[in-house]
Every structure is written in structure tokens, then in C-alpha cells.
Amino acid sequence: MAVLALTNEYVEINGVNLSDRVRAGTLTVEAAQLDPTAMGDGWTRVTGGLKSGQLAIEFIDDFAAGEVDATLWPLFGTVVPFEVRPTADAVGVGNPSYTGEVFIAQHVVGGSIGELAAKSVTYPTSGPVARATA
């Protein structure tokens, strides 16, 4: 069994590789759990409903041109493409690519005195998320 320590995750938002400013990135997808249980079943039944997801990212903030804040601020309130991979290496069986679109629903600025300038955001996916190994 292979073990992977995340040290070089790839995170791209709207075609911009922001990996060198990411401390954590998590894509979560799920399907709604619907209950079609009827009288006489004896056990609860479950079927899948609509799928959804969210992309949570912790950025080390940077306000220079072309960096995190300058890249994300103009996207606020829009739907844009994303791609995440376990590593920045080429897409392959051991390094799948997850792609789709996210709604840039929030923008965060600020923090605590003496702390690293950072922002944690969570963007809902919009439409399907695809997984590719080639």
C-alpha cells in the first residue's frame, strides 16, 4: 500500500496555478441520501439523489499583482473552473486530476496581530466534478 504525504498539492483556480500559496486544499463531493423506505420493508432503504461538492482552500495571502488576493477578488460572485491534484506532477493513475467549476461565493481579508496573513475559503462546486487519470 502506497502512502502519500501531501507536500506539493496542485491547486488551480480559473487557470491560475496558486499551489505555491496553498497550505491546505480539500475537495469534498457527496450525494444526497434519499429514503425510499415503504411500509413492510423492515429495514431502511437508501438511494442516491443530487450530487454536490465544495472546495476548501487555506491560502497564504499575498496582495501583489498576480497573487492570491489580486487573482481571487475579481472572481468574487462568479463561477470559474478549478483543478486539484495530489501532487504537481503530471496527471496519471497515481496522481488523478479533479476538475469542475466552483462558485467564488466568499472573499476573506484580515487576521490576527502577529499571525501569518492567510485566508480560508470554501467554494461550492457548480455542476459535475470529473476525475481523470490521463
Rank of each mutant, 00 (worst) to 15 (best):
A2F: 11
A5H: 08
E9K: 09
V11P: 05
E12S: 06
G15D: 13
N17W: 12
S19R: 08
V22T: 01
A24V: 02
G25E: 02
G25M: 05
T26H: 08
T26C: 08
V29F: 04
L34W: 06
D35L: 12
P36E: 12
T37N: 11
T37M: 15
A38L: 13
G40S: 10
T44V: 06
R45C: 01
T47C: 06
G48E: 10
L50A: 06
Q54C: 03
L55Q: 00
L55I: 00
A56W: 05
I57Q: 01
I57A: 01
D62K: 14
F63T: 03
A65N: 07
G66T: 10
E67T: 08
E67H: 12
A70T: 05
A70R: 13
F76H: 14
G77L: 15
V80R: 07
P81D: 13
F82D: 01
P86V: 00
A88K: 01
D89L: 09
V91A: 05
N95Q: 03
S97E: 08
G100H: 06
I104E: 04
V109T: 05
V109W: 10
V109M: 11
G110V: 04
E115V: 05
L116M: 12
L116W: 05
A118P: 07
A118H: 14
T122N: 13
Y123S: 04
Y123C: 07
P124Y: 04
A130I: 12
R131P: 01
A132L: 09
A134N: 12
A134D: 14
